[in-house]
């Protein structure tokens, strides 16, 4: 049974344009993701593809002008907003993106300790700091005194000490040196091996490929492919969706060919397949309706041509 399942999630924002005229911006549409216990799922995609919003939607911390539809289940039960409140920080933890997510007027050590739900908070915080190579005096520092890498490790610590079942890490690696990246990724691996699950939101595909079990590829607010990580290693034949293929080909160690064009803005989405305008394989059918996500070769894909 999957520990966390997101089915047909849509997120839209109410916005006032020109006076009192209200428009609904749909930024995530029919998004599907499942997270199994004991595995690391990497969510990859360009910025603006709705990766961070997915994390916030799962935790129920979207701003008040956002409306959400679709079903999120956690451990088989629907994650209602009341349940979201109950599981935040206890069952599901977030590793946010930047130092701005730390209280500027509080010692970082105390901030990590507030995440500890049971046991000796000070001991847990010191242990995790040591593992992540943070000196002990760091706990007495304020966020503004941290370097970028120290801030990221502090943010990581808050999730590590919390004893949760699911960690959602939003871009945890940029700005870290390779040793610490490896340490962080090893921590995620170990965490998953204990029977928990990690959702690793990133645009660093290379790190994702090293550590993840499954890859979910996002494009313009929806999932275009969910595949085992092996499909992305080696040659690209096993990759199902043309966008994922293009991403793979854009990697430096592969063909290093960038994808022409850019991701559509949420307010100007094409009517058919969202990737059709940039797709080499696009046929007139692709422009008619957005394809549903379907099972294919032990993975999932949202493309009518995929084989």
């Amino acid at each position: 049974m999957s520990i966390l399942e997101v089915k047909n999630l849509s997120v839209s924002f109410k916005q006032y344009t020109a006076g009192l005229k209200q428009t609904n911006h749909k930024v995530i549409s029919s998004l599907n993701v499942t997270l199994e216990a004991g595995e690391i799922l990497a969510v990859v995609g360009a910025s603006g593809s709705g990766k961070s919003l997915l994390a916030h939607a799962i935790l129920g911390i979207l701003p008040s002008n956002a409306s959400v539809s679709g079903v999120i289940t956690f451990e088989g039960e629907e994650l209602t907003s009341a349940r979201q409140k109950a599981v935040r920080g206890k069952e599901i933890a977030l590793v946010p993106q930047s130092v701005n997510f730390l209280d500027p007027l509080m010692h970082v050590g105390s901030q990590v300790r507030t995440s500890v739900k049971k046991g000796d908070a000070v001991k847990a915080q010191r242990a995790v700091f040591e593992r992540l190579h943070l000196r002990q005096e760091v706990e007495q520092m304020y966020p503004f005194q941290l370097s970028g890498g120290m801030a990221r490790r502090t943010l990581l610590s808050t999730a590590m000490v919390s004893g949760v079942k699911v960690i959602i890490a939003d871009e945890p690696t940029p700005g870290l040196d390779p040793v610490v990246i490896k340490e962080a990724l090893d921590q995620f691996r170990e965490f998953a091996n204990q029977g928990c699950a990690v959702m690793l939101i990133t645009h660093d595909i290379e790190s994702a490929l090293q550590i993840a079990d499954k890859i979910a590829v996002f494009y313009a607010g929806t999932t275009v492919e969910i595949a085992k990580v092996e499909d992305f290693l080696g040659q690209s034949e096993a990759i199902r969706h043309p966008y994922s293929k293009a991403l793979w080909r854009a990697l430096p160690q592969n063909d290093f060919i960038p994808i022409p064009g850019s991701q559509p803005h949420p307010s100007a989405l094409p009517t058919g397949c969202l990737f059709a305008p940039r797709c080499e394989m696009a046929t007139p059918e692709c422009w008619e309706a957005q394809p549903d996500i379907r099972n294919l070769r032990d993975g999932m894909v949202r493309c009518i041509h995929a084989t």
């Binding site: 409140k85 935040r88 920080g89 977030l94 946010p96 997510f101 500027p104 507030t114």
Partner: peptide
């Protein structure tokens, strides 16, 4: 509305 309060809420504080 700050990020740090958002993160505090994500950790279950309210």
């Amino acid at each position: 509305a700050s990020d740090y309060v958002l993160f505090a809420r994500a950790r279950g504080e309210q």
